[in-house]
Design a protein around this nucleic acid. Sequence first.
DNA 1: CCGCATCCGATGTGATACTG
DNA 2: CAGTATCACATCGGATGCGG
Lengths: 230, 230
Amino acid sequence: MGRGYNQHCTLAYALDQIGERWTLLIVRELLAGPRRYTDLAQGLVTVPSNILASRLRDMEALGLVARKRLPAPAENVTVYELTEEGAALSDAVTALSRWGMRSLPPTTDGRAFRAHWLIPVMEARFDPEAAASVSESYQLQIDDEEFVHFTVHDGHGEALPGPAPEPAVAVSADAETLVALANGAITIPEATSRGATIQGAPDAIQRMLEILPPPTRTSKATARRDAVRR
Amino acid sequence: MGRGYNQHCTLAYALDQIGERWTLLIVRELLAGPRRYTDLAQGLVTVPSNILASRLRDMEALGLVARKRLPAPAENVTVYELTEEGAALSDAVTALSRWGMRSLPPTTDGRAFRAHWLIPVMEARFDPEAAASVSESYQLQIDDEEFVHFTVHDGHGEALPGPAPEPAVAVSADAETLVALANGAITIPEATSRGATIQGAPDAIQRMLEILPPPTRTSKATARRDAVRR
DNA sequence: CCGCATCCGATGTGATACTG
DNA sequence: CAGTATCACATCGGATGCGG
């Protein structure tokens, strides 16, 4: 990209730093915890290796990520992790995810899907008011493999990778069903009829649905892409 | 750019739509109200005209902006305005602006500056709790030309272009002083000593400072850019 | 294997010029 | 005023290579 917008504007300044392709997706990956180079490449699915290396260099120079050598047991593997400045992008990532939720289709249609990509999605759906005086966790499992969970603690909530210690609700489903569920396209009964497993007390499930409500969607039928010509 | 990330992720999906260069800055411009092509080009300062035309075409095809012909009095001029979908990007723009505020330098250093760029900045600084049971407006004027203002109405607030009808506080200053003030680098007394004019009751000024508090800043001294080599 | 670097064709960008 | 046309150039994406 050409260098810089050269505008004294907080938005333009932010975009000068994280507006390049792949940068915010790298942040998304690292919001699920420190990752190795190859883990990042895998989570980003189609990123060219030279681009990934270049972005990590830039982000390190900007103070958004830090390299770290793992301690004793693991051999000399390097991991990347977000600095405080980089982690502060969480809110922006959440806001963009919330906007993307409005029109993301309810089916994957051959696109890649990873469980930890739901972390910003859950953060975006979180309703603090519904979570007042609630303290419990909700766990999601995809294809009997990866876990993510959301922990509520009295008005505050946080999405985290991995299984929950003591989930009040545990949902397990294949990717396609979980995507439709996260999208609000199907209800919990429909999900179970598709083979999903939902464990937990009915009132806990009810609380989960109120604390992580489905997105307000827009009818994308009105967007006519045939107007593009280039 | 290569087309699409091909990931079923709300963030990647959002970035597929608005991640290209200039797009979010066009949204920033249109958040200040409908604009003509040449107004946009002026507000974006350095945008190449072909890029602007291309982006507007894409954004129209995506349903983010709509063209409109002005009514009777004005000749056949076309204006662009945000659709509901496009206006919904306001929160994401605000979140990115809030992040950019952390490290934006307090001086313009030759970069362009426009008053309406403060709209997302004021939205980002807004503290709803401090605004409970307050209903008034704060007006900013830059270089005796452009106005922006912020209206509070009982816990809700909104930044708008133009002068305020009955401002409780009216600040007027040159760009450099206003930038330093917005950045939190100088205090109101320091601003007045630089030639700024602040009109309003002392307690209204106090409320304004609590409702639109200065950003939490980060010491950018730690970011070593000399690590970049490319 | 992990962590990149190199090469190359395709595409996007930026500056300028030009037109209905 | 509201864009289109052109072209040099930077960047991206994909494949491949390569030392540790």
